[in-house]
Design a protein around this nucleic acid. Sequence first.
DNA 1: AGCTGTGAAAAGATTCACAGCG
DNA 2: CGCTGTGAATCTTTTCACAGCT
Lengths: 224, 224
Amino acid sequence: MSERRPREIPEATVARLAVYLRVLTGLVDASTVTVSSEELAAIAGVNSAKLRKDLSYLGSIGTRGVGYDVTVLRERIASSLGLSERRTCVLVGIGNLGHALAGYAGFSSRGFTFVGYFDADPGRVGLPIADGTISDISALESVVEENGVSIGVIATPADAAQTVCDRLVDAGVTSILNFAPSVLSVPDNVDVRKVDLAAELQILSFHEHRKSRGPDGGLVESVG
Amino acid sequence: MSERRPREIPEATVARLAVYLRVLTGLVDASTVTVSSEELAAIAGVNSAKLRKDLSYLGSIGTRGVGYDVTVLRERIASSLGLSERRTCVLVGIGNLGHALAGYAGFSSRGFTFVGYFDADPGRVGLPIADGTISDISALESVVEENGVSIGVIATPADAAQTVCDRLVDAGVTSILNFAPSVLSVPDNVDVRKVDLAAELQILSFHEHRKSRGPDGGLVESVG
DNA sequence: AGCTGTGAAAAGATTCACAGCG
DNA sequence: CGCTGTGAATCTTTTCACAGCT
């Protein structure tokens, strides 16, 4: 009766659930049966109170005095993330990065099926890639529609990204993972996540910059 | 006089500064002289109050009633991010993703110089990559030390990541960008940023899952 | 008048600390 | 007794709204 009303799961929690899921898969492979929040948190690199709060959004899964059943917990997280049903994806833009993404085993092993690889360059169309062949971008809409694709991955140059995004959205895609260094505009019902490689380095650069000065802003003498 | 005491710049702000920087570079290229917080925010995909607050951490840069000088602002952000000095990096793990990262023009064009590409596979050592050659991982420490490398990029399989990380840190690297799906432990003085490709798709999967049910949890009828 | 810069309020995320179940 | 699950406290981030400079 006290079926826990799953209040809205916070965005920050969702991001961590994916990490816990990976860690738990490792534990399952190592035949671990039970894990405490303390142990799991240590492996996942978070603090245990945070982990417990994160898991509490999924309902009461653990056993007090004992911990969490690894298999049960993993299953529960996977289902919360919607990974029980396989999702179909397309990848657009098959340059260096596109090739790397297509070859990334982590995707298919984790419930994502790529049903199309597209590029605008005629010189690339027809070349083999991963488990398929590069298609001309003109086929994008039909493939998306025929396969009920819900996730589109964009790895084109920045100047093509918005156009590709618009076409994906028009064809029915409602989630986009964008590797192009550009800000995409989409309707409200579409989710976009961005991976900005250069920005990541710049953020690290900021911290390097920080470290080379004292907390008070003064220069710190080099250790070397 | 009222030289603005630059209170600690929040982490969330730092991440956005990198985005503003890219947008501003685009505006410079388009010969735009001045931009208002409203305009800049629209292009960067954030709200204008947030943008103004972000910029306020860098000091008072804009002109009331007018806006920001594009060149001045860009320069100011670049210097805050520590991009005035060029940073040297090494890349470890030259699989598909490593190749893509090495070939990513965005890095060198934005102030990052890669001084070494390493892999443990003898079959890869000596092959050309980007502007150099793949080196054996055994040379890692000497290259890091000789070049004062501050940023290490890890694109190895998960099971090698921690070992590589330890070696980088021991050799003096204080910032790590990790593409391997694993949690790294590092000393306090070392910063780690993680890019987890599968996790990104899983987060989108969660939102897809969400969308297929109503806000109240009920199933929503398919639109097709 | 227009637009920045910023206190103050609101929302969101993390951490604490402990009640309560097994 | 040990460990989960969670209110309450704290800290961070976002948003509001307007004083004040140009």
